[in-house]
Write a protein that binds this DNA or RNA. Structure first.
Lengths: 154, 154
DNA sequence: CCTATTAGGTTGCAATATGCAACTTACTAG
DNA sequence: CTAGTAAGTTGCATATTGCAACCTAATAGG
């Protein structure tokens, strides 16, 4: 497995691979979904997800280690530990929503619950979409991949 | 905070697990990244990703089976097979971009390449963000999770 | 204080999944 | 007819996951 380590280093330069290194393991994303929905404690994650305790222990440790969750011992009950999302973890929300919307549309067919709303207007958020710099949604035929070097014009 | 039974019910209705079922396996997403960047053939995926041939074979089969890729035998060279994204697969672009942007910002620190632009203006697309129904980006403190049933107010 | 229960783990072991190298099968090019 | 190429498959080693039982430190109740 030495080559595997070397390969991981190579892939670290691609930010997608880098992202998957930290959140691409089995269960990691479901744990994060739980965290976004207000779960904080080991036993809560364990019972709602039905994940094996050793795997949960391992994943929480890795998520903490990579700065996505923070581990806060409860001062009023020293057995308890609260896991909560850091800024880095909270910033995964667009990923989570995109994936959820895709699953909703193409796999499960059912509308997910709960739903995110604009607190002020109580209106549901827009579907995640690729948009231009002004926020206008772009169709796929309006998109093109270019080398970053060619971007300098204008 | 909501009780555990309620969480259990929420998590059951969430389509995230369904999505992860089909694209959450190791390598699947990196294969899709390749497909989005123009790879089509077995040997191309194999050599650019460095993935084991048997695993690649298995993942391609699963992605085809779940309708994310389609397998097109090349009529001019009957050894060759082109794997290309279906509508369902192409619709994963927001997920891929969100994840890539997160990795760029929080993990790799380096800017990814290539980059998506609006074909007409040559301007780079906006970062993936949570937006209200009118397309305005929302800060995290403007967001709230609500039960879908409470949404009915026009 | 003594005991039961709870929270958050760890351990040992079986079942799966992954990784690697070598091999195969069908073509195709020369 | 031969060499090479594309897309796999096979056998076997290593890693990861899942399960159940166990452990330890803290409470909670009487």
């Amino acid at each position: 497995m030495l080559d595997l380590e070397r390969h991981r280093e190579m892939l670290r330069q691609c930010s997608l691979a880098a992202a998957l290194e930290t959140v691409g393991e089995r269960w990691s994303f479901l744990i994060l979904r739980g965290a976004f929905n207000g779960l904080h404690h080991f036993e809560e994650f364990q019972s709602t997800l039905g994940i094996a305790r050793n795997i949960l222990s391992n994943r929480l440790a890795r998520l903490v280690e990579s700065g996505i969750l923070q581990r806060d011992p409860d001062p009023t009950d020293r057995r308890r530990v609260a896991y909560r999302l850091t800024e880095k973890g909270l910033d995964l929300l667009p990923v989570l929503l995109s994936l959820r919307q895709w699953g909703e549309r193409w796999v499960s067919g059912t509308l997910s619950n709960p739903v995110l709303v604009d607190r002020a207007t109580r209106r549901q958020i827009a579907p995640m979409a690729v948009r231009d710099a002004d926020g206008r949604p772009l169709r796929r035929d309006e998109l093109e991949w270019v080398d970053r070097a060619e971007l300098k014009e204008a």
